[in-house]
Design a protein around this nucleic acid. Structure first.
Length: 567
DNA sequence: AAACCTCGCAACCGCTTCAAG
DNA sequence: TCTTGAAGCGGTTGCGAGGTT
């Protein structure tokens, strides 16, 4: 495997070994097909490394050791920038590098690690001796594309289960109260220790994870979400993957979801940095940002942003995404059969693990499965909000206040309306996911298996006909009561549905004002907040942590909603 | 046989973080 | 405290190889 370039280098410069000359005019300085950049000493070469250059670099490192890469050029006559030298050394020349294809064990480990860390390639590489971050990254990106094409979930259900198990385990050890933070701390301390749960042991659970809270992805645990997410999921969320130039790969469905959040949040003011960072840490970007390279100057909530969030969340609800298919932006992965999400029999795929896409399984597993706790996101969240929690916990009710704010409050409603109007004003461009808020709701409720959410809360489309966006948000969700009712109606075994409700509940909060938003974030990680949901969660065997995280994730919503109110 | 397409890998770019001055 | 440079990280791009039409 990795040898095309190396091989090429060798092929091209087999005679370069004699070019160790340090003469700036030597072939070392200009050979190869790529141009170079000039620095004081001449043209810095770019492009594939030659064996001669490798030799020089190796020689240099032998003498001077690693580091001070910028000095390489000066001392060795190598016309490469320090960065290039470091990269070359780290990825190809340093000893103990393991070459060749990843072993199945390594692949499993990568999947696990990615589920927990997200695109933290360097950290992942630390767990894979002899492997480089670049290698892992390439592997993952390749894998993503492959699975995307195949319509497979990014992560096998085993990984979800494993994460769940670890989550539960840690929860047990840390206690539910404040477990979130505590656990996170632990996580950090252990630097994402890989769980000891044997991968193979999880095989038995294949197919029992019908629904994973893909919501998480949106917020912070994008990775997990993605992973857990079914094919549908990542058809919207790309992963992790592409951020800037995403349009280029319009087919890479992933990007869509990601983008949404970042896009919106990026324009938020400093006070929302926390949310922003959190979101960013997950590589969230707005999918159909007209100009992916620029931060959207427009109020988030006003446009896609709001949708993005919703979209992201609701992408989790596969069953109802069918109708959305037509609305999918070009960015969305074309090969993903969105329309089939809701169908009981998705196209036969390579892996049976996809079963979890289709039918709901044991509720317990599902919810936790998506717990972002183990995602890099979680880590970031904890980090960011640790301070908040410590203080908030002192006045426990404070954080809970955010959760007790009645969505039905006039202010909230108006805010929501504002958001909603903003969306409309912007033409409710086909959201990355092709959903509007209403649609989101629609998607989430129908999921209910045992509840009557569908009947009681008809899909937004039903309510509004074809123009979902024109439907005032409050028509869908008018009060906290209603929200809670829906919560109750919803089968908790459907985490996505719950999260959807959660989202609504918090979205109203966020729009209230920035303070509330901040509180929500803090609460998200705090005991208080999670405790507010604990009862519900407990009834459904949902981990309080999961709720706490859910809250956390959705605490990001405020930023989004608020943006709509920005001048 | 040629054109086209996809894949995989190496390398580059831009940004962030960190430490030294 | 601020500045600056080095290092690190993640995302993206370029290009050859191999497969398909």
């Amino acid at each position: 495997m990795f040898l095309s370039w190396q091989g090429m280098s060798r092929t091209i410069n087999e005679s370069d070994d004699s070019m160790l000359s340090k003469d700036p005019k030597s072939p070392l300085g200009d050979e190869g097909h790529s141009g170079g950049i000039t620095n004081g000493a001449g043209v810095l070469k770019k492009g594939p490394w030659t064996s001669a250059e490798d030799a020089i670099l190796i020689e240099y490192v032998k003498k001077h050791g690693e580091g001070n890469w910028n000095a390489v050029q000066k001392h060795s006559g190598l016309y490469r920038c320090g960065k290039s030298c470091r990269l070359r050394w780290a990825n190809h020349l340093r000893p103990n590098l393991k070459k060749g294809a990843f072993t199945p064990e390594e692949e499993q480990l990568i999947i696990e690690l990615h589920a927990k860390m997200g695109n933290k390639w360097a950290r992942m590489a630390a767990h894979l001796p002899g492997r480089t971050d670049n290698e892992i990254k390439n592997y993952w990106n390749t894998r993503i594309k492959r699975r995307q094409r195949a319509g497979l979930p990014l992560y096998p259900s085993e990984v979800c289960l494993q994460v769940l198990q670890e989550s539960q385990r840690s929860q047990t050890s840390c206690g539910t109260s404040g477990g979130g933070v505590g656990h996170l701390d632990l996580m950090q301390t252990h630097s994402y220790e890989i769980p000891s749960v044997p991968f193979d042991s999880l095989k038995a659970y294949q197919g029992i994870l019908p629904y994973v809270p893909e919501f998480h992805d949106i917020s912070a645990g994008g990775m997990l979400m993605k992973g857990i997410g079914s094919s549908q999921y990542y058809s919207f969320m790309p992963s992790t993957v592409h951020r800037q130039k995403r349009l280029r790969e319009s087919m890479d469905a992933f990007s869509d979801f990601d983008g949404s959040i970042t896009w919106g949040l990026q324009s938020v003011d400093q006070s929302q940095d926390t949310c922003d960072k959190i979101v960013r840490s997950f590589g969230l970007t707005f999918p159909y940002d007209p100009d992916p390279t620029t931060e959207n100057p427009l109020p988030f909530g006003a446009t896609q942003g709001g949708h993005s969030l919703s979209n992201g969340n609701f992408s989790a609800s596969k069953p109802d995404l069918g109708p959305v298919k037509l609305e999918l932006p070009s960015l969305q992965y074309p090969e993903t059969d969105l329309g089939s999400w809701g169908t009981p029999s998705p196209p036969p795929l390579l892996e049976s693990v996809d079963a979890f896409i289709q039918s709901p399984g044991p509720g317990t597993v599902q919810i936790d499965c998506g717990s972002p706790r183990y995602s890099g996101l979680l880590d970031a969240l904890v980090h960011e909000s640790k301070t908040h929690c410590s203080t908030k916990n002192q006045s426990s009710d404070k954080s809970s206040n955010s959760s007790t704010v009645t969505p039905g409050d006039a202010a909230d409603s108006s805010t929501l309306n504002t958001c909603e109007r903003e969306w409309d004003a912007n033409g409710d461009p086909v959201s990355p996911l092709g959903h509007s808020t209403a649609l989101i709701f629609n998607e989430s409720t129908p999921i209910s298996v045992s509840g009557s959410s569908v009947d009681e809360h008809p899909p937004a489309e039903t309510l509004t006909g074809s123009s979902v966006k024109s439907e005032p948000v409050e028509h869908i969700f008018t009060s906290e009561k209603e929200t809670k009712k829906i919560f109750n109606d919803l089968n908790v075994s459907r985490p996505d549905a719950l999260l959807a409700s959660d989202w609504f509940e918090h979205s109203t909060l966020c729009v209230k004002d920035q303070t509330i938003m901040t509180d929500a974030i803090a609460a998200l990680l705090g005991d208080d907040f999670s405790s507010n949901h604990k009862d519900m969660a407990a009834d459904t065997h949902t981990s309080s942590q999961g709720w706490g995280l859910g809250s956390c994730e959705w605490s990001n919503m405020p930023a989004v909603c608020q943006m709509s109110e920005l001048p």
